[in-house]
Design a protein around this nucleic acid. Sequence first.
RNA 1: CGGGGCAUAGCGCAGCCUGGUAGCGCAUCUGGUUUGGGACCAGAGGGUCGCAAGUUCGAAUCUUGCUGCCCCGACCA
Length: 443
Amino acid sequence: MRLSRYFLPILKETPKEAEIVSHRLMLRAGMIRQQSAGIYSWLPLGLRVLRKIERIVEEEQARAGAIQMLMPTLQSADLWRESGRYDAYGKEMLRIQDRHERDMLYGPTNEEMITDIFRSYVRSYKDLPLNLYHIQWKFRDEVRPRFGVMRGREFLMKDAYSFDIDQEKAVESYNRMFVAYLRTYKRMGLTAIPMRAETGPIGGDLSHEFIVLAETGESAVFCHADYLTKDVPGEDLDFNSDLTPIVKDWTSHYAATEDVVDMAEFEGTVPEEKRISARGIEVGQTFYFGTKYSEPMGAKVATSEGTEVPVHMGSYGVGVSRLLGAIIEANHDDEGIIWPASVAPFHVGLINLKPGDELSDGACEALYAKLEAAGIEVLYDDTDTRAGAKFATMDLIGLPFQVVAGPRGLKDGVLEVKDRRTGEKELLSPEATFDKLKAALTV
RNA sequence: CGGGGCAUAGCGCAGCCUGGUAGCGCAUCUGGUUUGGGACCAGAGGGUCGCAAGUUCGAAUCUUGCUGCCCCGACCA
């Protein structure tokens, strides 16, 4: 992408409404624009990152056997009356009426709807296990939206729903999602720790919150330091195998948020030098809630004995839009964002220091074409502005690598390659530059 | 929902106390000089001062109501 033809509205000054660093940087980098309290437009750069995150989530859901679909944002109140949550949910649910004065709502979650879909089609244990998910916009009318996309009212969420014949099988489904989450966050460059969770208004027995440690996290968390270095299963993992040992390992040490923490247990089971008490951001949650919805809504399946039982369910959320904030909170410095390559809006920022100069233009065009042909995404700054402004912009938007091309270096046949994270700069020939980037960015 | 604050040009702000029809920096546009870490000079454009009512000869400024947004708390992915 040529910057001269792109839409990247950078802000030099920080808008006053932004308090925390991820919100500030997202506004300054031209990723989002607030349209109303807790409701944002996604500008081109922000949308690219959002899509990258979705892609990783989709790949890992598929690996774990979940099947993607799409449910609407607007729902009929009738389904929610069946589960009893229409009255229970409170003011966080945005209620609206259509022209026939029928009660509708903008979905804050989809348990009722997926249960309705399930009961309409599935009758037999032979069709289980089943895990259906979608990635869709949700709305929760928070009393006080804040922190940009971290706590918006409208947010993009992946929610998966598992269906099993009994509790034992449901736990297997739960474990598959649990392990998928470990992999999902890892691929985004995050260390997410599964912590004991309150089951909240959704209800249930077995539940974990996946927490990313960050100074600006919304809640205090307490955990064992070994979680920070624990291995995450690789791509070769067979999701049809018994995942219990992995889940067991990842839940073997103490980890809890302030809502449920038992300080005596924390201090009793974690040696002092291994105790971490920090702040964290919740980026996902897994629940097993049994027959909480299937029972009242009549979602039953036939067992192998021919009897009918309510299906056992679980739900598994990932805060997709919120992850942008979490990733930035965990990856930034004073100059701006530092994207992990897997979610970076572009891989490389190519800076032409002197557009119009034959040497600079030639070197940039050649490298630009070569990188793009190799599947590396390049934001090519071909604009006629000053060097300082170009560097500042690239640092702000945080692409993993910057390549600087100008007459001074090209006289000696070299480009400058900068690693955004370490700040290290190297002078390399165009060929060596390409080879280095290709090696660093191709998995 | 309780407490606090803000609303003046695209962004950040001053002016308000003590009424006299609006200003600064950045950004934008034009011309020139510059050009390897957010340039400089000269000029230009851009504002129903959030909305409505009231007081007054006169309101950005004083009064009342409304709306929007932000912060702290309670609540949540």
